[in-house]
Amino acid sequence: MAEALATVARLDGLGMITIRADLSRSGDAIAEAAGLAIPDATRISTDGSRSLGWMSPDELLLILPAQETPDAIAALEQALAAEHALIADVSDARAVFEVIGDHASDVIAKLSPAHLDALPQDGLRRSRAAQTAAAFWRVDGGFRLIGFRSTADYLDLVLQSAACPGSGLAPR
């Protein structure tokens, strides 16, 4: 039996913070509090343990080790105290997967209409995975994909199924 196109694994231990603010006004304050540069539209900036993803023109997602979440929220709230902004802990609302392997992009290409060739190394694509909302970006050897907690089992099912051994997208 051939190998799966990629290994699909659920990842625990990540904190996530939604930040809504006027990025042109509050960008510097956010960057300082988050410890990361503000990403350009549809990009994600990262320093290894933390990532800051562009979700919409007035929304960022800070992804960090779970234990750092409370302090990061406090830092952000303090930094944005004088601004109109919304900061929400969404760590528990998400499910995170890693899709790692030589053919990881085949797995994503079976579930999302996103144009993967056009996804830069630091690109973050919000799209759908089969019938549920998802966002994904590149990591070493594949992709990291986030979806909603309630549909984690569904996501796992469709990702595993897309990674079915022998079902690579290369022409036969």
């Binding site: 528990d92 089969a130 019938q131 549909t151 569904y154």
Partner: peptide
Amino acid sequence: ADARGEAFQPLRKTP
């Protein structure tokens, strides 16, 4: 395609 059986549509589960 794979939208059948358990994956027919996303089943949302509470904690």
